[in-house]
Design a protein around this nucleic acid. Structure first.
Lengths: 201, 201
DNA sequence: TACTTTATTTAACAACGTTAAATTTTATAA
DNA sequence: TTATAAAATTTAACGTTGTTAAATAAAGTA
């Protein structure tokens, strides 16, 4: 009597369909164009059917947000694991962050309340904190390896992350002249500059 | 026959009322709560009357955006004019930027597409560019005074501004631990750090 | 006072998120 | 296989949004 199980499998497929459809609409037309009716149409159901899978539109966005932060965290972890050099580690983690934002602009928007996303600030808080702690860890590692004493490690992490987030935000809004590659170099260079300043007593 | 003039005066007052009402609603309940009907109610008119003053809701937001960038630019200009010391000048300009964002969070959101604001990216571009050019100017001045050669002055300006914008964004979303004062110090310190790095060959 | 113009409001439309009711489809039991 | 219960799905509807058209009220002019 695997009928219940089959149903559950179908449910998961449809649920995933809702998520990918939402993401696709956002990719094509921005987050304000993501409507329940359009999502329903995408999965070839009537609009109210969406509510059999998510309690509200906000829940869809929150789920996508969670997935996004998971993937970003994973990408950064891989970057960190890819080298033993503490400085290079920071630069690669930053580049992983940068690449994620460039390859998934609409998800980055969702994860940071950009591009007309209406999500309560509390939604971001936890995941952001996690990313920031990760940044703090690799900075502390770096400082230790270099024999540098960071008087405010969390502050340093927040600075690096803010710089990164600022450049990404600006780049995503296509406000930086010279295209993505230039902005990418800017990220790398500015972080190196910060590390340089922190290396000197 | 000053009847036409009186009408025009009244018109300007009502127009201003629409702008301040929109800002007030956003301040109290966020930008997604700013609706034409509520704005109409605020100025004690029916909703459609708003369209006698602005062609669309977007036009209201764009006007507020323009005013916001004007005021921000003015505040930064005053900060710049307040000292001859090139380094202090940069720090004061950054603090003016910071103070504007803290004192007008909903306007800062509007000006940068935060907090559920749905405005086309093109809307920001011009004004942002202006602010960035201002940053470039004071950085070039600083470099000249310090005998430093900035190989990419615009890039340096974009870095400083991104750092500033990143910290402001994070602070406005109340994601920084330790409150506003700590974040303000972070801004000052990080910019000093960048300048320090750029001072060294 | 009568008429024209202007100012303002009410009604309405399409689209939104969401819920309730109606309907169709599917599974179960005789 | 057919009647019935359960589940799945859709249609209709509510209140809200931005916006426009039509109706009404007010003001100015002759």
């Amino acid at each position: 009597m695997g009928i219940k199980e089959r149903r559950e499998r179908e449910r998961q497929i449809t649920k995933q369909g809702i998520l990918t459809a939402s993401l696709e609409i956002a990719r094509q037309s921005g987050w304000s164009a993501v409507t329940i009716r359009k999502v329903g149409e995408s999965i070839e159901y009537s609009a109210p059917m969406v509510y059999q899978y998510f309690a509200s539109k906000e829940e869809i966005l929150l789920e996508l947000l969670r997935i996004g932060f998971d993937e970003l965290g994973q990408a950064m972890q891989e970057a960190i694991a890819s080298t033993e050099d503490k400085t290079e580690r920071i630069l690669r983690a930053a580049d992983a962050y940068w690449q994620f934002a460039q390859n998934n602009p609409e998800r980055y928007q969702l994860m940071h309340g950009l591009g007309g996303v209406t999500l309560a600030p509390e939604a971001f808080a936890a995941s952001i904190k996690q990313t920031c702690e990760l940044a703090e860890n690799i900075l502390v590692d770096w400082a230790q390896a270099k024999g540098v004493t960071l008087e405010d490690p969390l502050g340093a992490a927040e600075i690096v992350w803010s710089l990164l987030h600022g450049l990404v935000s600006v780049s995503l809004a296509e406000r930086v002249q010279g295209g993505k590659d230039r902005a990418r170099n800017l990220v790398q260079r500015s972080i190196q500059d910060l590390l340089k300043a922190w290396s000197i007593p």
